[in-house]
Nucleic acid binder design. Structure first.
Lengths: 217, 217
DNA sequence: AAGTTAGACTAACAGTGTTAGCCGACGAGC
DNA sequence: GCTCGTCGGCTAACACTGTTAGTCTAACTT
């Protein structure tokens, strides 16, 4: 029941403003409902106070709108990861703690924005869209291999060639855990602790330790 | 464009037959399109040669129909895994090869029925449905922990307590790999080999080896 | 023979994505 | 000052969707 007052059209160069409003509303609805078909163009139109077809001035289809929302989400996740890594580094964290920080940021994102996170990986690739900078998922892959490469370079340089594999393993395993956590009805759901423990257990198994045993603390 | 001949109603006790036909058509459409909203009740009705509302005699809603299809898919996957394990055991495979066989069966299923596999993990849990035997995903979890438990019991009995964790790790990591493989546009897509290599690499890292070094072949 | 009911159907409602076409207002060019 | 284009939006309409209500037919039960 938004204000039904006759919306005054944006000024000449300000069309972009409405685009952002549409994007915002769509993001909110997607996060609340979590299903692409629960997002209706008429719904977002109602929320921003415009007529449904007006959306087409800014997005060429509903799929385009959804894709745009998800691309922004991909970027936000990548930023969150990189910020967490830099913050940890600035705080003088050791390599393992830095990986831990990034993993935590990833989990936070997936848990705080669960519907969008799920949507990111449940969309078919649409070949009609010009892959502006490759599929956004490539960015994600890059972020993880960067993480493991930095870790290996500093801790076990001799095994640095495994960085790629290790990055994939870390990411996919983490993602699998989160999906499981999201989908499981009762047992684990809502209990973030066991998710953290799983992460710990995973990192112990996956991350190589220094070759020469360093004096424990 | 199925036969538009007036469909003769099934005999008295044969209502189940139509139910199966509907289920089959829905399964096929879901596998072809991969999106829940691409499945239309009118579509499946057309395909089986009935009127759309007649579906409601057998399924209380579209969601119910989809859920039923997916539950069958869950069961089929669990069966495929267990059969692969038993076949390997019957062929005298060692514990590691048995795990390998199960992993392979899982991958085969996910690759051969990609849309349905994806849908299995992209559906929100619906609390209205009576969880007949818990969420089907629990079955999946069980299958994996059983696998790792059998492996540990035979190979590293002292670490058998890790079976649960290990099962989760194995499954979630595998699932993550498959999602990645499905979603990635070009690079890896269609190239099953790198998927197998990733599995190998994962199993090497995850599966504990015997405590007392056995004479290598 | 009568009644009940399984197994279907038609009609209709509200809501969807999308297209076609219109309209008012602002800016540039003359 | 006046026209003209075009930006930012609107209304009407199409074809489709899930779903409900009510109805018909034929078989089974009594």
């Amino acid at each position: 029941m938004k204000s039904q007052v006759k919306r005054v059209p944006n000024a000449r160069g300000e069309g972009e403003r409405l685009r952002q409003e549409i994007l915002g509303a769509a993001t909110r609805i997607l996060e609340e409902t979590g299903r692409e078909d629960a997002l209706s163009l008429r719904g977002v139109a109602r929320e921003v106070g415009i007529a449904a077809p007006s959306v087409y001035r800014h997005f060429k289809s509903k799929a385009d709108l959804v894709t745009t929302v998800l691309e922004a989400t991909y970027r936000a996740l990548a930023v969150a990861m990189s910020e967490a890594g830099e913050a940890a580094a600035a705080a003088g964290a050791d390599p393992r703690e830095r990986v831990r920080a990034i993993v935590t940021a990833y989990r936070r994102f997936a848990i705080d924005k669960p519907r969008r996170y799920r949507l990111m990986f449940s969309l078919e690739y649409e070949p009609d869209r010009p892959p502006a900078t490759g599929h956004p998922i490539d960015t994600m892959l890059q972020a993880w291999t960067d993480t493991t490469d930095a870790y290996l370079a500093e801790v076990v340089p001799s095994r640095r060639s495994e960085a790629q594999d290790l990055g994939v393993h870390l990411w996919t395993a983490l993602h699998g855990q989160l999906v499981l956590w999201h989908t499981l009805p009762s047992a684990a759901a809502g209990n973030e602790t066991i998710l953290i423990e799983l992460e710990e257990s995973l990192l112990r198994r996956l991350l190589p330790v220094p070759e020469a045993p360093s004096p424990a603390q």
